[in-house]
C-alpha cells in the first residue's frame, strides 16, 4: 500500500489534494508560525461581532436539531419548547422582544416554550420567516411530530381503554 512518497509519485498534486490531508511531522513544524496562527485565532474570537455570534449560534442550533430529528433516539427534554427557547437565546433576545418579532402575545410564547400548547402552523411558518429560512417550518413541525409519535407509541393506558371499544380485530399479527 502506498505511503506518502509513493502517492506523490503516482498522482498529480490536484488528485492528491482531492483525496488527502497528509501527515505532518510535529518535529518539523514551524512553532513560531503555529503560535502566531492560534494567537490570531483567539484574538479573532475575542473580537467577534454580534452578527457573527448569532450566525454561529443559529447554525449550531440548526445542526443540533437536524441530528436529533434524524436520530431514532427520543428525549422528552428535547421538545419544541426547548429548541424554541434555545433559538431565542441564540439570538440574544428577551422573550418579550421575540414575541414582538413574530407577532404573538408573550403569554402564548411562554406557553409554547413550556410545551403547554401546541404551535399552530401559522407560528411554525413565522419561525421559518424569522430565521430567514435557515430553520424551515418543517423542522419545527417534526419536533412536535416526534414528541407526539413517542406519546402515541408509549401510551399503555390509551391502548387499554381503546381495546374496550374495538368489537372485532384481525386474528393474525406479524
Amino acid at each position: 500500500m502506498m505511503g506518502t512518497e509513493k502517492k506523490s509519485k503516482a498522482h498529480s498534486d490536484k488528485e492528491l489534494a482531492m483525496a488527502h490531508v497528509f501527515p505532518i511531522d510535529p518535529a518539523t513544524t514551524d512553532k513560531a508560525a503555529e503560535k502566531d496562527f492560534w494567537g490570531k485565532r483567539r484574538k479573532q474570537l475575542a473580537q467577534r461581532s454580534p452578527g457573527e455570534t448569532i450566525f454561529s449560534n443559529i447554525m449550531q442550533l440548526k445542526f443540533r436539531m437536524e441530528d436529533y430529528l434524524r436520530s431514532e433516539y427520543y428525549d422528552s427534554a428535547l421538545s419544541f419548547g426547548y429548541f424554541l427557547k434555545a433559538y431565542i437565546f441564540a439570538l440574544g433576545k428577551k422573550n418579550i422582544e421575540f414575541a414582538e418579532d413574530i407577532g404573538i402575545q408573550p403569554t402564548e410564547l411562554s406557553q409554547l416554550i413550556h410545551n403547554h400548547r401546541d404551535p399552530k402552523q401559522e407560528v411554525l411558518v413565522r419561525l421559518e420567516i424569522h430565521s430567514n429560512n435557515n430553520i424551515p417550518a418543517i423542522m419545527w413541525y417534526r419536533l412536535v411530530e416526534k414528541h407526539k409519535a413517542h406519546e402515541l407509541m408509549s401510551d399503555v393506558a390509551l391502548r387499554k381503554s381503546a381495546r374496550k371499544h374495538v368489537k372485532r380485530h384481525l386474528e393474525f399479527s406479524f
Partner: peptide, 22 residues
Amino acid sequence: AFINGYNGFVCLVPKTALIKHY
C-alpha cells in the same frame, strides 16, 4: 465545527505543493 459552536472553523496543515488546490 458548527455543532461545537466554532462557527464552522476547520483547519489543516497542508503540504506546500497542494495549497493552491485546497
